[in-house]
Design a protein around this nucleic acid. Structure first.
Lengths: 213, 213
DNA sequence: ACCTCACTAATCAAATTTGACTAGGCTGGA
DNA sequence: TCCAGCCTAGTCAAATTTGATTAGTGAGGT
């Protein structure tokens, strides 16, 4: 599974009620178009699909204030919230070497209680270590590592990345345990969405070094 | 673009002539099903598509030796070889945070001259460093990093991964310059394909810790 | 008054990917 | 002998993703 469903569900949830363009803007504000497949087509498709599956309800809205086609607003259902939490937990725990999924989950990690977040990340680290043991054994044949030739570099690369990922995760666990950020049930949450009408400080497109801020 | 075209083109090229099932087996032998979308459907689709585009030529073969439907063999064309090299170079140079593409390219890196491989990897490292400068500036706002809240962890994660990737690439450059592996034009290449009839020492599916080898 | 640009909001066809399924032949045990 | 299970080789529908395109509105320049 890709990150798009988690991203879209989470964005709608934070707004309570949102139309596609709003979701699209949030994700851009997050920089999600840089590291995931959060493009217009995918977002609108995900919204429709998840509405069909009962995770969202669609409300048709009149042609709207400022130009453009009539827009549809979406609200998350109870089933949708459940799905969101399932996806979020899964994304935090499993090491499937798709960095976009972890990234998406990081954006919503504060929607869980602090205790649980730490617990899930611990399990993530364990998962990485287990994966590492499995493949290390797997690709280190008894007739010497040379048998693999340069192909061995592929696994070497993965193992290296996994190690870096584990180390980073341990760091994050430390920061969270050290009291960083505001988690579910800890009052005033940090909301990473744009209010209606608020301008997006980040332009579309590449992270521009000459960003005129 | 995904890794599948590079993988399929490269696999066909190594065989000279191959049918889909052979490609599928090679990629499995490489472990590609673990870290890329090298599933049957994708492979057969890529073969057909690239035949349509003139990168491969298809030969219909009689119902074949051992069971199963009639198979189609593919040969790579000159245009296909060009495309292969283009994809390979691009995959080595560009840091697009999709690890499967780099992995695929690593599998074919020895199809280039040693000199060029090193040069491309150098450019890769530069690319990563440039990317890092751009996003570091981008996501470090003048009103303090706290404004980003936990969202900042996403970029933090990416930067960490990028650093790990750069470091690993430097290591690989060192190994290659140190004389490791056999590159294009250096005689007897290492061939990472299964001969017809050779058994695949790796079973399908997960890297099994209890692998009976 | 006219034209161009940018923004809002979304749609669409084409390409790709997923995951399940087909169908023939071979093998080994009851 | 018969049948369950595996291997070979691939197909197919459904879901998703890509990249381009549409269409209305308002602002600014000439």
């Amino acid at each position: 599974m890709s990150a798009i469903r988690l991203l879209v569900l989470g964005a709608v949830r934070q707004h309570g009620r949102a139309h596609g363009y709003q979701v699209r803007n949030d994700l851009e504000y997050w920089g999600a178009h840089e590291w995931s497949n959060a493009k217009p087509g995918s977002i609108y498709h995900a919204l429709k699909q998840m509405a069909k599956q009962g995770f969202l309800v669609a409300h048709e809205i009149a042609p709207s204030t400022a130009g453009g086609p009539p827009r549809t607003e979406y609200e998350i259902t109870d089933k949708g919230t459940e799905e969101f939490l399932t996806l979020l937990r899964e994304a935090l725990v499993t090491y499937d070497q798709k960095p976009d999924i972890l990234s998406a989950a990081l954006g919503f990690i504060v929607d869980l209680p602090r205790r649980e977040a730490v617990e899930l990340l611990r399990r993530r680290v364990e998962g990485i270590e287990e994966w590492r043991r499995a493949v290390t054994e797997y690709y280190t044949p008894e007739d010497g590592p040379e048998r693999l030739g340069h192909i061995g570099e592929i696994m070497n690369f993965w193992v290296h990345s996994a190690d870096a990922g584990a180390e980073w995760t341990r760091g994050l666990i430390g920061r969270i345990e050290g009291g960083a950020y505001t988690f579910a049930g800890e009052g005033e949450p940090f909301v990473g969405v744009l209010a209606e009408g608020q301008e997006n400080p980040y332009a579309t497109g590449e992270p521009d070094p000459g960003d005129p801020r």
